[in-house]
Design a protein around this nucleic acid. Structure first.
Lengths: 391, 391
DNA sequence: GGAGTTCGTTAGTAACCTTTACTAACTAAC
DNA sequence: GTTAGTTAGTAAAGGTTACTAACGAACTCC
């Protein structure tokens, strides 16, 4: 039974009109954009599963064999795709010509600027396999000096790149906007440094600059096999996180997503933090403080208690985030000896005891498997995505 | 100075190969897809700022006047767009013909199934202005009975729709997947009910079914003028949230995003919850318990303390989420008398004192302005987005 | 009234993907 | 060994789509 009552003119446009009418240019699709998109789909399919034929691609991507042949011809012309020869199977019909991305024919340069003492970098192939490494000392180097250190590192790595370079990816600490401008990186004393533009101009190569934790997150997603809804937490001198939702990196309203280091944990005080508050997550987990506390431990049991307590704090902080975003995976990156044992267990237990039971079933908490290269590999993924549409 | 060291064959494909090679079909862009996209851009531009000419649209969207004319001709043919007449301005050149979306020529039906006692619904125009209302009593009605109540409500509303119906939107409690199947809604005893499909089949109209809090969030975003990175929290018998990141609704790995009601708050115990844990956010904020506590208050000051304490708990929970996602706005929806005063203040103060100072500057915390219609309006937006590409 | 500007349309072109039709190369069955 | 059936890839033709170039209409300004 329905009780009805008409009422006209409530709410509606009034509030809506306050919104900016901004359709950003470039959103429209012209034929060449469509082509680029389809081309990226082909590359993506080839990247994920090598050994596909044109016909396989047609089925996978949803375009006709004719169109795929045309796209592939372009890609082969650019040497981005190579023919591997005939498929060895024995089955009816003309044997297929297998294709693959030219994984060894190009390289990518990735940089990790997150360490206080050294900028690290690497040259990798398209699979993220490291071919060359480099690092440059930056203890106490800031401002323009730090920028020059980036150039020095890149000069060295690019000189040793034996194949054409697809692009340069850089994971920087601090807040980085979508154009790759470092809005603010206190440790490096960088303020509004358009690093991406500077690098692109200087080397005449595509460049991608983003926050280090965000880079680590997409690195873990592509090369670490992480889920499409995951969070990567980097623990070191500070604490930062990168969040992937629905396979996409989150940037936040002020490009400051993942900044959970200075969120207060729990309702029972805690140590004083450099930021002025008490009980910030960083005071519990950042390695300098944590290691100092561990140094005071008299035996292994005490050590474990300290680590477990730190893990609990992380779990308390993550609870609302994991619940709100319905994440399926949380990955920790940082010194394995500190994070890997009791701390990880403490976090897992706390998360389990403080969130909905329905969640536990498909929530994975683990350490990264990418080790020290995580940010560099993330930078590589960023270039792959930006230049080839692949991830 | 660069210290270098080559090292081959680390990480790379191994982990990556474990990932499923799934390029979902339909991702490719055929000419007609491009056309549909461009058409949506035109509608979007018209929707947000009425009184644009074809030439204005060309500038706004980035297509040529010719193409825009062609698209607009199609839209006029479908009566989705109308000509308003010549622009009244006095300036050089041929006067422009102003266009607008045919805001009053079509209607949308929106339903809100989140209330335990009544299913509410409305017929609105494309601006979300309510034209007709309806409701149906469902106290104690569950399962198939609830489905039939939905049909009864829709039958009544559709019968009174004086203009062609663009589509039907439904905000349902519980977990709803991307296809609009209610995976689980305990209160309604629904399990895997393909409500969207059922409605679409029954009425031969486009249907959109989603979680009520998610609907509320996009309703607040489009009609309440909320930011692109925001969270809407619905407080009632339970507690649910909808999260918008970068203008996009978040669904979560198991379509359960926003389920923060059963995340434990703080480190100092709390009341026992129906879920078995202690100190869940719901035990602090859900209206039944909160009102019971308020009933025991002997004076206004005590009332305020209770509300402020509840607000603090909300702030404690939100801290990590606001920080991690770098949200710029948090909106509360629910009984204004309970949420609007001390509770809101308590939440704001707590958020301020527990998150990074840099965040406070551009974080807004407020009550919704959409009132009771918030879910219905969200459902309307969902239909607008789904059918016209507008939001 | 002429020059300049802006709007919207017409005509022709280029890009893109599709359908249809073909050849090549294989397996399986008689 | 021949024939039928299948699969891969290419070629030609066709339909959409959006672009450029060009034009008339309708206005302002001098």
């Amino acid at each position: 039974m329905t009780t009805d009552e008409a009422q006209r003119g409530s709410s509606g446009r009034a509030a809506q009109a306050t919104r900016a009418a901004a359709v950003r240019p470039g959103a429209r699709v012209r034929p060449e954009h469509a082509r680029r998109h389809n081309r990226a789909l082909v590359l993506q399919a080839l990247y994920r599963a090598e050994g596909l034929s044109r016909a396989d691609l047609a089925r996978e991507v949803g375009l006709t064999r004719v169109t795929i042949s045309d796209l592939v011809a372009d890609l082969i012309g650019e040497h981005l795709v190579i023919e591997l020869g005939l498929r060895p199977d024995s089955r009816p019909g003309k044997p297929a010509t297998l294709l693959d991305i030219n994984r060894k024919g190009f390289v990518i340069v990735g940089l990790d600027l997150s360490n206080n003492a050294v900028f690290r970098g690497a040259v990798t192939d398209l699979d993220g396999t490291v071919i060359e490494r480099g690092e440059v000392d930056v203890d106490g180097v800031v401002g323009e000096g730090a920028t020059n250190a980036v150039y020095a590192l890149l000069d060295g790595l690019l000189a040793r790149a034996a194949s054409p370079v697809i692009g340069i990816g850089v994971g920087s600490p601090g807040i980085v906007d979508l154009e790759g401008t470092v809005v603010s990186a206190p440790n490096l004393e960088w303020h509004h440094v358009p690093l991406q533009q500077l690098i692109a101009d200087r080397y005449q190569l595509p460049a991608q600059v983003a926050n280090d934790a965000n880079m680590a997150a997409i690195g873990e997603r592509t090369f670490g096999g992480a889920d499409a809804d995951m969070m990567l937490i980097r623990v070191g001198r500070g604490l930062g996180a990168g969040i992937v939702v629905g396979g996409q990196l989150i940037y936040g309203s002020g490009f400051a997503s993942g900044e959970i280091g200075h969120v207060v944990v729990g309702t029972d005080g805690g140590d004083e933090c450099a930021c002025g508050k008490r009980g910030c997550l960083e005071t519990w987990l950042a390695t300098p403080r944590l290691e100092a506390r561990l140094a005071n431990a008299s035996n292994e049991a005490e050590r474990e208690d300290i680590l477990r307590a730190a893990g609990e704090r992380l779990g308390i902080s993550l609870g609302p985030v994991v619940g709100a975003l319905n994440l399926s995976e949380v990955v920790l990156a940082g010194p394995h000896t500190v994070l890997g044992g009791a701390l990880l267990d403490g976090t897992a237990e706390t998360l389990r005891s403080r969130t909905m039971a329905e969640l536990h079933g498909h929530l994975t908490l683990r350490m990264t498997t990418l080790g020290r290269d995580i940010v560099v590999l993330g930078a590589v993924v960023m270039v792959l995505t930006g230049q080839l549409g692949v991830s």
